[in-house]
Amino acid sequence: MIQAKQLCLSYGERLAVDHLEFTIEQGECFGLLGPNGAGKSSTLACLSGLGDGWTGTIEVQGKAVRPAKELAVRRSFGLVPQDLAVYEGMTARENLAFFGELAGLNAGERGTAIDRGLALAGLEDRADDRVDQFSGGMKRRLNLAVGDVHQPPVLFLDEPTVGVDPQSRNHIFETLESLASEGRTLVYTTHYMEEAERLCQRILIMNEGKSLGCGTHEELTAQAELPSGSTLEDVFLHMTGRSLRDG
């Protein structure tokens, strides 16, 4: 479904993505797990066709994401950025309508998409309130719903639960699980093991732009040559080392 080969992205001297290779199957939830600064967001940027500074190839359903003019490829995915990428001066409904329109939904489709998005975010009661009056958790939920407004086959999620309360986190999780059960493909980045463990079938552990291992929990345990039954955290710390990460 999604195939990346020899993926590299550098910011000046620094290689943020260093020769990554992976394949993501249709309908799977694929995890990108790594400490801060590992290159998770940079990898998603390449996958979603942002920027033109990267090298290598990415194919989505057999079609190259580049050149960026290939709008059809873009229509097949949605991005939920790590930053809250919604307009604070507009209401939840207006944000969904605006991004839905740009994603290519016509007026008729938009109506249902907005209702679905509001339900997805659990914001039916606050649909016509401006986003700057929302709590962090509400904004996160809206951020997710906006990325999924056109219900793309593939959804890229960049740490969608950062800084939210347990209720919102749980809501987001249940939402993602239901999307997964619809057969949608999810690519999920996080630095929380338990999230990756709960949601993802296969996980790519990355650090400093490089892949340290890729597979199911069991496969990763084997790759790390740890006794079976080790937690994902053991595997992760074994692979990435125990020194502090400050970006």
């Binding site: 709008l71 990428a85 290519g104």
Partner: peptide, 14 residues
């Protein structure tokens, strides 16, 4: 603020 990233990912000419 990040909305640019989202706009650029959308299926429209930048």
């Amino acid at each position: 603020e990040g909305t640019m990233r989202r706009l650029l990912s959308l299926p429209m000419p930048p």
